[in-house]
Amino acid sequence: MTNSVRAAQPRGTEKRRRLTAAAAQVLHEQGVERTTLADIARVAGVPVGNLYYYFKTKDELVQAALSEHVAYLGELTARLGELPGPLDRLRGLVAAWVEQRELAARYGCPTGSLASELGKRGDGTLDAEAGGVIRRLLGWTAEQFREAGFDDAEDLAVTLVSGYQGMSLMACALRDPGIMIREGDRLLRWLDGLDA
């Protein structure tokens, strides 16, 4: 971003952005229930009193973290969209998951972990928003399978994304990033078998 563009941003935009990114990070690392607003303010480098100017409640910060997940997914799928074919894009998706193996082994999948925790609250709002992020991933994945000519694209998308969620959960539960590598290889072989 150039200085002229940065100067044109409304005051506080950068601080809000730092808070949003910090919320995504801290909620992933600590979970919703263990995270305090002070934790997020500290990671963002913002005085805790200033946080209330941007976010009145922890739920608003959870929503901001979910928007971070949506933005990350958009950036990832845009990069993958530059690959030549739909199965190449899906292989790239698996590779991106495996690249995050250390993070997954420590904290699990950022969106999956958050969706699981929010689902237990059962308030019907934030858990639905977290599910919406996963639905976006499923939709993009199904679109790739459809483009590759598969009639059962939605089912294949669920299989692929479930494989990721499972390997992420197991890597975290066992603190073994190698699971991500082994299961990622298995998913790639599965995709190659579909391509045959």
Rank of each mutant, 00 (worst) to 15 (best):
G124A: 08
G108L: 13
R101D: 06
T111K: 06
P110E: 07
V158D: 00
G119I: 06
A148R: 07
R146L: 13
F150P: 01
G85L: 09
E102H: 12
L90C: 10
Y164L: 03
L93G: 03
D123H: 06
D151F: 00
A171Q: 12
A142F: 14
G132E: 05
E129W: 12
G139P: 08
E102L: 10
L126V: 01
V98M: 02
E117H: 11
I134N: 06
E117C: 09
W140Q: 14
G149E: 03
D155V: 07
L118V: 13
D152Q: 10
D151R: 11
G149P: 01
L114D: 04
D151P: 04
L160Q: 01
R79G: 14
V94P: 04
A78N: 12
A128V: 15
L103Y: 01
D127C: 09
R135T: 05
L87T: 11
C109P: 07
R79M: 08
V98T: 14
R91P: 02
V161T: 05
A115Y: 06
P86Q: 11
L90R: 09
A78Q: 14
L83R: 15
L156W: 12
T125A: 09
G108M: 08
M167Q: 13
A115N: 11
R79S: 14
Y164Q: 06
E147F: 04
L87R: 15
G139C: 07
E154P: 00
L93K: 06
L83T: 07
Y164A: 01
M170D: 01
E143L: 15
A142L: 12
G81L: 03
T141S: 15
V94D: 07
L103Q: 10
L80A: 08
S113Q: 14
G149C: 01
A104I: 06
L118M: 11
D88E: 15
Q165W: 01
A105G: 11
A157W: 02
A128T: 15
Q165P: 00
D152A: 05
L76R: 02
T111W: 05
G166W: 04
E143M: 14
S116Q: 13
R89V: 08
E147I: 02
G139Q: 13
G163Y: 02
V94K: 08
R106T: 12
Y164N: 02
Y164E: 05
D152C: 01
A130M: 13
W140K: 13
L80T: 03
Q165N: 02
G74I: 07
L90P: 11
A115S: 14
D88I: 08
F150L: 06
S168C: 13
R135M: 09
L156A: 03
Q100P: 00
F145E: 09
E129S: 10
